[in-house]
Nucleic acid binder design. Sequence first.
DNA 1: GCTGTAGTATTACAGCTGTAGTAGATGGCG
DNA 2: CGCCATCTACTACAGCTGTAATACTACAGC
Lengths: 133, 133
Amino acid sequence: MSSRKQLSDLQIAILRVLWRDGEASVAAMQEALRGDDRELAHTTVATLLTRLEARGIVRRRTEGRQFVYSPIVGEDEVRRSMVSALTDRLFAGDPSALVHHLIDEGAIDAEELARLKRLLASKQRKQGGGRDA
Amino acid sequence: MSSRKQLSDLQIAILRVLWRDGEASVAAMQEALRGDDRELAHTTVATLLTRLEARGIVRRRTEGRQFVYSPIVGEDEVRRSMVSALTDRLFAGDPSALVHHLIDEGAIDAEELARLKRLLASKQRKQGGGRDA
DNA sequence: GCTGTAGTATTACAGCTGTAGTAGATGGCG
DNA sequence: CGCCATCTACTACAGCTGTAATACTACAGC
């Protein structure tokens, strides 16, 4: 599944608001997107949300005269599909090459990596422990 | 710098050919893109390359009656800008959150992480050693 | 009850991308 | 020398995105 959701910057910005707040009316969304160094017209935001609804990315319910939108796709789902698309396209599908890149960039230092390794270890203990010796 | 290069799938596919082969004529590019489960018309490939040239992504020289294209932007540069865009949009700009995600996905196992950590250690030794104590 | 206001629906448009046809140039082969 | 194959330039067009105006609807307050 995961149905190849490729989303633009702005579409993701909208989803982030919905993930954070759970749901949002058009006005609330407009407010939330403001200050993000731009100011979109109310109708613009409405159009964007309508389109996302048509694509099955978000859903809406009616509340009085207005629509309240909530996300259908989850954050992890979007992360999965976008990270994997990026990995495929630029790192020959090899996730460790992506991490390698981050390290080369100096984006991840030893401390963070150690922390992540501990995380991985505890994750494995939890999952591997119940499975076999 | 790095001039916000956001590239589509197909544009990246083209660049990957150029990075791999150094340069390519339209015919060679068409051939290289074939089998990628699709078949593009010669003119389509020509159009794509012309547009990339207009955007300063690739350059071309004339060889006889045909153009031979070569990349201007480097692979690392594109990786940097696209990974950083993704990190900003989906991981609040925190690269370690991206790695965290990969670990959660099971995309990186302990062995790979250990290998990456060694890599990082050797990198730090090299860079930190020449700079100060 | 009427009017203003808030809200949605419809329509519009430009820019980018994927896709390719057609037209025009040119070089090679018979 | 002339025609075919090759190659580029130009044009076209649909779909998606960002952006928003306009038009229509309906509640809320006076």
